[in-house]
Nucleic acid binder design. Structure first.
Length: 491
DNA sequence: AAAAAAC
């Protein structure tokens, strides 16, 4: 294995762009996969988010694409993604690492107008990144012919199967020439994926970098007992948020889309900086919310499982499962949004009495116990600096200038009582100060180091250093201003 | 028992 990019066989245009992006060392999957891919071998990559998976195919593709030219409506390469956000993310990678190339690219996803997509397709594209539905639509309209595709990437294959895309994928792949290079990536490997690879790949190289269904040791996982009553559950969540040390930003997962909207609104009413993300929202709002979250204009992202996998959101400090996921694998993917790239992260899961069965399935899957927060011995987040207990017992007031609500609870030990904390909202949740309070936020972060409370509304305190220090390259990278521009994708 | 993806 090489330990820098120069030994992998990538072209200088690519290695220059990689260097310009600030990366020097390939990740494990990159080091393993890239040499094979440059040899035009088929490849199965078993890797989870955060391993640099995306760059492991983008970089060699860029090198391979340097020979040849695109013809109208006949893309040279095709990348299939399960969600629109993932597709957009991959296109960002092509922009970043392809900046020394003159390659054209089109993003073919639903929810955006056909017009720009069509213009680009007519001119011919080297790289086509698509979600299955819109791609098939465009194929049927005669806008795309796939018989010139040299390279096919099926990304997040397990999720594609989960989402019932298998028929669509088959229809699409059947339109590709048999002589091509195919790569398939999946977080897990099971019989179904195996069957898929037999069907679509020829003599593939296997590359695996992390065990499936494992949870990173860098994630501090905790269970929190809660009532099943919605308002009490929401109060318990707020108490958890307030009690979380070092919370810079967090994703809060709900099982249902309508709960996403409800919870986000509730949090906002209580003065938190929260936005929502789920598949029923129009594409523009989805992209705007995601961008606001990535650029730290939004601290809390309430989301459905659309955000559970693959999404490139660097350095989420906390994940909250407002609901226990019904499918155990979703738990692994959700909490995998934190503790990435060797950093520490915290994942809280709120567990109502009826959730026992699903919880058992999760414990069985991840093969290790998760502590309950009640347990005094383990209740303190291990990920943050061990403070003396005295510091922790400090009252939480004063963390912001003009508080919109009273302290969440009495200044006693913060375990056991919190999840039962009945709503304390003091009847004035609606008085939202019009403007933000960045100064207060900064103050709370900088001048009150002893206060255990993190400020959920803080925004200004973190930024460049996070973006840079994160991401060993690959799935996590500097922030894209790009998602807002849904149409202008080729360079 | 949920979400995602085409118009």
């Amino acid at each position: 294995m090489t330990d820098d990019f120069s030994g992998l066989g990538l072209s200088s245009k690519v290695t220059d762009a990689v260097a310009a992006a600030g990366y020097t060392k390939p990740t494990e999957i990159q080091a393993q996969a890239i040499p094979h891919l440059l040899q035009k071998k088929d490849l199965i990559g078993i890797a989870q988010t955060g391993t640099g998976k995306t760059a492991s195919f983008v970089l060699p593709m860029l090198t391979l694409l340097e020979n040849g030219r695109a013809r109208a409506r006949m893309p040279r390469t095709l990348i299939l993604e399960p969600t629109r956000e993932l597709a957009a993310q991959v296109s960002e990678n092509f922009e970043k690492y392809g900046k020394n190339h003159r390659l054209s690219m089109a993003l073919i996803i639903g929810g955006v107008s056909f017009e720009d997509q069509n213009k680009k397709l007519d001119r011919g594209v080297d790289v086509l990144i698509a979600t299955p539905g819109r791609l098939l639509d465009q194929i049927e309209r005669g806008k795309i012919m796939l018989n010139g595709v040299e390279i096919l990437v099926i990304d997040e294959a397990d999720r594609m199967l989960d989402m019932g895309f298998i028929d669509d994928i088959e229809k699409i792949v059947n339109r590709l020439p048999p002589r091509r290079q195919t790569m398939l990536f999946s977080a897990t490997m099971d019989a179904q994926i195996e069957r898929l690879t037999k069907k679509f790949l020829k003599d593939p190289v296997h590359v695996q970098v992390s065990r499936a269904a494992s949870t990173a040791d860098t994630i501090d996982q905790k269970l929190v007992k809660v009532s099943s009553k919605p308002d009490e559950k929401r109060a318990a969540l707020r108490a958890r948020i307030d009690a979380s040390e070092g919370l810079t930003n967090a994703i809060i997962f709900c099982n249902r889309k309508r709960d996403v909207a409800t919870l986000a609104r509730s949090l906002e009413r209580h003065g938190y900086s929260a936005g929502s993300l789920h598949g029923d929202m129009d594409q523009k709002s989805r992209m705007e919310t995601l961008d606001a979250f990535k650029t730290n204009k939004l601290t809390l992202l309430v989301a459905s499982d659309v955000a559970a996998r693959g999404l490139d959101i660097p350095a989420v400090s906390h994940v909250f499962n407002f609901d226990v996921p019904v499918h155990a694998e979703d738990y692994v993917h959700r909490i995998g949004r934190t503790g990435r790239a060797g950093r520490s992260g915290v994942a809280y899961t709120l567990v109502a009495p009826a959730d026992g069965k699903h919880l058992d399935a999760i414990l069985k899957l991840i093969q290790k116990p998760i502590d309950w927060l009640d347990d005094v011995k383990t209740a303190k987040p291990a990920a943050s600096e061990e403070q003396a207990d005295g510091a922790e017992a400090k009252p939480s007031r004063g963390r912001r200038g003009r508080a919109t609500r009273p302290p969440a609870r009495a200044p006693r030990e913060q375990n056991a009582t919190t999840e039962r904390a009945t709503p304390v909202e003091a009847a004035a949740p609606a008085e939202r100060p019009a403007a933000e309070r960045p100064s207060a936020a900064v103050r709370s972060a900088a001048a009150e180091p002893a206060a255990p409370k993190s400020n959920s509304r803080q925004r200004a305190s973190r930024k460049p250093e996070q973006a840079a220090a994160d991401s060993p390259f690959g799935d996590a990278g500097p922030i894209p201003a790009f998602l807002l521009r849904s149409t202008r994708l080729s360079q």
